[in-house]
Design a protein around this nucleic acid. Sequence first.
DNA 1: TATGAATGAGAGTTCATTCAT
DNA 2: AATGAATGAACTCTCATTCAT
Lengths: 234, 234, 234, 234
Amino acid sequence: MTSAIERPAVAEEDAPARPLRKDAARNRELLIAAAREVFARRGIEASLDDVARRAGLGVGTAYRHFANKYELLTALMTQTIDEIVAQAEYAATMDDPWEGLVTFLEAALTVQAKDRGLREVLMGVHDPEKLEQVHDRIAAPLDEIVRRAKRARLVRRDVEPSDVGVIIGMLCTVADIGGDEHPELWRRYLPLCLEGLKPGAPKPAVKALDEAQIRRAMATHKHGFPERRPSPSG
Amino acid sequence: MTSAIERPAVAEEDAPARPLRKDAARNRELLIAAAREVFARRGIEASLDDVARRAGLGVGTAYRHFANKYELLTALMTQTIDEIVAQAEYAATMDDPWEGLVTFLEAALTVQAKDRGLREVLMGVHDPEKLEQVHDRIAAPLDEIVRRAKRARLVRRDVEPSDVGVIIGMLCTVADIGGDEHPELWRRYLPLCLEGLKPGAPKPAVKALDEAQIRRAMATHKHGFPERRPSPSG
Amino acid sequence: MTSAIERPAVAEEDAPARPLRKDAARNRELLIAAAREVFARRGIEASLDDVARRAGLGVGTAYRHFANKYELLTALMTQTIDEIVAQAEYAATMDDPWEGLVTFLEAALTVQAKDRGLREVLMGVHDPEKLEQVHDRIAAPLDEIVRRAKRARLVRRDVEPSDVGVIIGMLCTVADIGGDEHPELWRRYLPLCLEGLKPGAPKPAVKALDEAQIRRAMATHKHGFPERRPSPSG
Amino acid sequence: MTSAIERPAVAEEDAPARPLRKDAARNRELLIAAAREVFARRGIEASLDDVARRAGLGVGTAYRHFANKYELLTALMTQTIDEIVAQAEYAATMDDPWEGLVTFLEAALTVQAKDRGLREVLMGVHDPEKLEQVHDRIAAPLDEIVRRAKRARLVRRDVEPSDVGVIIGMLCTVADIGGDEHPELWRRYLPLCLEGLKPGAPKPAVKALDEAQIRRAMATHKHGFPERRPSPSG
DNA sequence: TATGAATGAGAGTTCATTCAT
DNA sequence: AATGAATGAACTCTCATTCAT
């Protein structure tokens, strides 16, 4: 459940993942924690200076650990994905497949509902490679969760793993709307969404995305991240 | 359905809204169209320079028509809200209440699904006054739509107008995910959401927001738009 | 006589005014020197870009040291005010009260005559708070200078400290007129003004401003500096 | 005493001063009056758009009458100079030379004291040619005023016409300081200055500027007027 | 001729990123 | 390794000036 992130940004390419010196590792965690707080409150617009200051470190240190702001954001996401993957793996083993599905959704939302910056990053991912990794890790347990629910006739045949991802996105939006004042609002719409997956519900005319499609869809640059600009010369 | 945008930003005092010169009116439309395209593709982060360039005009012209970037965004929103309100009013009069509800949702989504910037504005606008106006105009027909559906026992008693607003938001997110490649993806999740409103579906433990709550929630500054600053000209 | 400028603009919170790094301190001085030159020559209309260029630095650096153009101007003014206050304090202790008065006027003018931007700021600053501070510091020695001259019957009874301030302003104008070509022109009009203060000279029909009045008068926004605007970063 | 300005800006070079059509002449006066009001209140920073709006005309019309903002400002000055020249001519004929001198100074100040923009322009003149014309017209009566006062031993031998000009400037500054709240403050400092001209007063060590010098000094570009910028290409 | 829409250079300011200390 | 000063491109907005209507 804790972060699996171990490589600093400076470790180019495929260095053998040498563990960080202890204080460096600590700074990395400080930065991620600070980023989470700052971005959670003010969104991804917040400046890295602010993040660094919150972490009690200099900006330079932030750049030693993360090649750029986007990398830091990605690290946040990765860390969270780690948690969600863990939850998915656990949920995939629960006795009751329905409970597994619900547990997974609740876990994912509980993590994301509190963090605006995180939601922004998760929906606006830029690095197709990174996203591939995420998908590679979540695909199996999510598949399993959905497959078991289908086998037990708890959800329709046309339901796909991508549906679960989309539903998480939808409920993130509800969390956005609810904001700090109604942090549990998404819980109203979770059963609502689940209801529509049940065998009794009509099968929608539009098909779900398959795995390749959802990968591509999410990898498409959608959210206001600037193209990597040419580095300032000075 | 017609545009509510009629006065250029320069009308400062109490000018009687004299109609624009033909070329100015055309440029205004060019700007709005360009803004829609640019913001639709790149989000509200896009610069007014880019909008003007896309319109084939100078920045100054943009500022002649809209006092600032935020006003332009608002104009876009207003125009669309007009359309949606019109749709709501129409839907509220349809013979079949269910068809009315579905028609309204489809209409709203059809408009918003294509426009990321618009969705950002609609979810993130922080001009409470403007948003009040929007709510003031949409409240009555939306109320009517929901009331009729409830009276006909097509949706549960605990369903509120705010639920419809939230569902629109959720489906906007789906549109975001679908992007240009799967522009109809949201149609898969519309029936799914509707299913959850039906009397057969379990009543969620969390209550819907009432009107005052949803107004407040949406008015809360979420998406980092700077406060309107006083002009520095003195 | 020493500079009162010690904290960089970045010290936002309650940092204990840690001394600047050596290079930063040097750049700060470069900036102030450049600002003095540029504003002295071209007035406060000159752009910060020009100031930075003259200092051989980037604009960003100017903004690291001064929150905005206005702050830089204030820093300049503060530095000079320090000098003038010191001169006033010294002049107030001179054996010969008349020599004290003249010495003070000459000192103040010598400082200001060379610097158009400074004169503009001193006459037009509209930060009432800052100006209050200036007055607070200069009031006592100036009072003393005038009081001693009056007690020694060297100037009329109706002369007020504000007269000295006004005379400085008048001579600044002469310096303006003289420009670089006649930098000492103001010295012609200094005895002229002093003559009018002597007991033999007729008492003017119009009374001098008292301290409260001159404070108000000088605090009134006269030279079009924009209000400090709230930062748009939110 | 009324304006002697008769040529529109469009009359290039030395057209034979054809009188303007009546409405054009009226617009010209409207513009100058509006400019006076606007610049008087807000200084020369005010925009031409504001001036034109105040005149009830379009900016374009302003540019038909004045080649640029600076020309308009100059027209203001010229108009005032006309008044002052007329006053000078009148004062030069008064029986009592001292009364003539005082009358002239009071008249000049009365005109200028009320108008901040005017003072800014008068001190910041740009067009050496225009200034030459002004000097050419004021020189004779001013000379006469000073000569008569000297002949009657009312002022020292070293007093020059330029001294009177400088004193006007100094008192303008007092008017600046007095602002709207103490519009008569300059009257306190007029006798003060005059006292210093009297034969009893000591002769200053620094000599007055002669006519050529003061012409040059005032023609020197001192105040924040931008170099004529290259016209925008679009 | 009069109008006011259009233009774009330029101003103040921010912030991701680099680099000297 | 850590720091934070420096950089400059980019952004929003203004206004003198031009030009189509």
